[in-house]
Write a protein that binds this DNA or RNA. Structure first.
Lengths: 207, 207
DNA sequence: TATGGATGGAACGGTATCGTATCGACGATA
DNA sequence: TATCGTCGATACGATACCGTTCCATCCATA
């Protein structure tokens, strides 16, 4: 087998030294994503990745058993430490805050290129699909907080359509920035937030 | 130069015969998209495309001067003959009809794979970006019809936020089907339509 | 029936990437 | 100080495409 040469070397401790550098591993991941953004996932060359990281190709294969394994490991680091949103006092304010933070993320050109590629790849391969749903779940849980708060405040009915509401939050901004490629102003975000709130309320039969 | 060996051979008419077969050209396009869906745009191999079309690689280079030119020509055929939507009597009904037709399109696995890839590529290369905006414009014009009808009926204010409304129509369904990979039921589409209408009305300051 | 152009197929040299192997240099442990 | 694994670098054979070229075949016109 001989899998997982990566991290620990658990079991016996080797007498001599020289441990794999975590900085180099990170640099490899970084280079991987830069290559991804520039060329597209399907066209990533590990030779270019290594060169971009200022490393030898062997440094990659010393850590990972195959191209796929490296890609999977890199993609998994996309755990995206999204900070939990503060309470801004009203649903509209919370939504606007969410949109503002999402806009900040989608502003990075690298992310704008990688995300749609990831979705396309998710439709092709099972592992990527799993990762995609994991990322989605993480984002969803964060959005749940906003809904729960609004319900606690009495701004939303308890029987609000959660699936719909959770999708409404990112959908239009994603469409606009990733699909159409334009970045909205703060004022446009505010208008969007108001419309989203109206749609959420309607979905609970409050209209 | 010697560009555009494709269609016409205009000018003198050759004495002997044998014209480039339009069926073969179409088969090449079809194979191109199948390869695209399976492998991703960046990894399309013209050799596989030709083989899949039951053709020789020469058949491609006899029609197009380069890989890029072939890709551009193929992509341009995505002119998507979207039928103009009928009037269903109310904004909500028109929106639901729009969603239903969009769902039908996004149901095709090939389209679900190609679209996000196209958006990723649009962020990378200018020609793809142009094509993408063209496709978007076509869809937008169609959605305009729905808005105009609603305004004529008095369902929407004349000062409705058109940009927002036009984005709201496809955004959530695209998010759900392409990004999350799930297909909504008819009932879910109806709920979504109601929510979208509410958001549109709010954006005109009616709420 | 004769002709000319398109066709599928095969081969070409060139380039790029793969995954592996090997090298001397470096550095931390023992 | 001696050892030993990681480091960057390089070379390797294998594979896959690229874009071009040639060929025998087929077919529609003339």
């Amino acid at each position: 087998m001989e899998r997982n040469r990566s991290v620990q070397k658990s079991g016996r401790k080797p007498s001599g030294a020289a441990v794999q550098s975590a900085e180099l591993t990170e640099a490899l991941y970084r280079a991987f994503f830069e290559e991804w953004a520039e060329r597209g996932f399907a066209a990533i060359s590990l030779e270019r990745v290594a060169a971009r990281a200022g490393a030898g190709k062997a440094a990659i294969y010393r850590r990972f058993a195959s191209h796929q394994e490296f890609a999977a490991a890199a993609v998994t680091t996309l755990g995206l430490t999204m900070a939990m949103p503060e309470d801004h006092g009203s649903l509209a304010a919370d939504v606007l805050d969410f949109l503002t933070r999402l806009r900040a993320v989608l502003r990075h050109p690298m992310i704008r290129r990688i995300l749609p590629d990831l979705h396309a790849e998710a439709a092709r391969s099972a592992p990527m699909r799993e990762l995609n749903t994991e990322v989605a779940k993480a984002r969803r849980e964060q959005a749940q907080v906003i809904l729960d708060r609004a319900i606690a405040r009495g701004e939303l009915d308890r029987d609000v359509d959660r699936d719909l509401a959770l999708d409404l939050l990112p959908a239009r901004l994603y469409w606009r920035m990733v699909v159409l490629g334009t970045t909205p102003t703060r004022g446009q975000l505010a208008t969007e937030a108001v419309a989203i709130v109206a749609a959420m309320k309607e979905s609970a039969g409050r209209g």
